[in-house]
Design a protein around this nucleic acid. Structure first.
Lengths: 205, 205
DNA sequence: GTCTATATTTAGATAGAC
DNA sequence: GTCTATCTAAATATAGAC
């Protein structure tokens, strides 16, 4: 019995340590990037010794991969938890607003996107994971909606969905990640107005 | 006279060295990223000693900045050298095709974009330079065209131009930089068809 | 101006005590 | 499992010969 209890405690403790390490590692990697984040910094930020890192993750790359999977999964759950509802004519605008406001104010996620792109050459599998977990489901949700609303009279809902999502993602990338807000600013409202107008246009005539 | 000749030679030699260093440095930075490109690698790639690097550029950051300015200027000259001409109805499609084919096959430029985004946190001025030199002129050219062709009946040509350019840039980023071509492929033709259709739609009815 | 050699710092990863 | 102390390699930057 004492043995069982000890094993349980040991197991729980291990989980907590891994969790503790990830929680410390995430802001470090997001802030400094992969190359400039040392295992020493992570150990310090997580409040554990460096050797403890290596007992829970094989190496720096393994820790980084676990970290990316964690954040991607978190965002995936958010993307898929938002049903499209409301007045049909308002859905596209609400959806665009939601995509923008949700992501533009999520500085952790913006850093994450920057990191994924930065390491997409060295870690192509992580960028594919990112697309598969986040961008692809988002496009699929929009595609489905565009297909279901035939009054929009779109010849190719999937391609249109990609343009819709893609132009919003680029807006965020341009304004926030690349600091376009300082050299070529545009309000989200104006951008969304025109994007929605392009898709709904036929109905307006 | 000997003195003049010597000064000239010295001057020319200095220019050649700076040029030689940049030519060696560019592929190294584009391939490895900023942090993983050592001054030793650059010296070796450029065929000079490390000390020579430091005699022409103050430090690694100075070399990197000069390199980014060089590439951005090169692309700027290309963007602005392409006039919009041809049948009015074909211009948008030709323009989209040109933007895609030009950039999607320019692997050096794709690496450059990756690098700019990667370092946009550490070097915000370089990302602003990138936008100012490349993205902004591109949007301005498209804006001007959309304004001049009022039969398109666009309420906000500038916002529409941003959507047009932005969705194309994202397509490239998604398919090539983030390897979306392997997990969510789509042909450029299909994407462009639908993008142009959205803008021209009114005319088609 | 250019090179070789080096000073100094810091990285990833490991050994050994407990 | 966790810690302190350490090994080895590689980075930026500089000193000094020519």
């Amino acid at each position: 019995m004492a043995k069982t209890k000890r094993a349980e405690k040991s197991h729980r403790s291990a989980l907590d340590k891994a969790e503790q390490i990830l929680r410390g590692a995430i802001p470090e990697f997001l802030k400094n990037g992969y190359a400039c984040t040392s295992m020493d910094k992570v150990a310090k930020a997580a409040g554990v010794s460096k050797q403890t890192l290596y007992s829970h993750f094989t190496d720096k790359e393994g820790l980084f991969t676990a970290l990316v999977k964690r954040i991607a999964t978190k965002k995936y759950n958010f993307v898929c938890s938002q049903p499209l509802e409301g007045e049909p004519k308002e859905v596209l605008r609400n959806l665009a607003d939601r995509i923008l406001t949700e992501n533009i104010n999520d500085s952790e996620y913006l850093e994450f996107v920057r990191l994924i792109i930065a390491e997409s050459g060295n870690y192509p599998d992580l960028s594919k994971l990112f697309l598969t977990q986040i961008a692809k489901p988002a496009v699929e949700i929009v595609t489905k909606y565009l297909q279901e609303n035939q009054e929009l009279d779109l010849e190719d809902p999937e391609a249109t969905a990609r343009i819709f999502v893609g132009s919003l993602v680029y807006f965020i990338l341009n304004q926030k990640v690349l600091h376009g807000i300082e050299v070529m600013p545009m309000t989200a409202e104006r951008y969304v107005d025109n994007l929605v107008a392009l898709i709904e246009r036929k109905n307006k005539i």
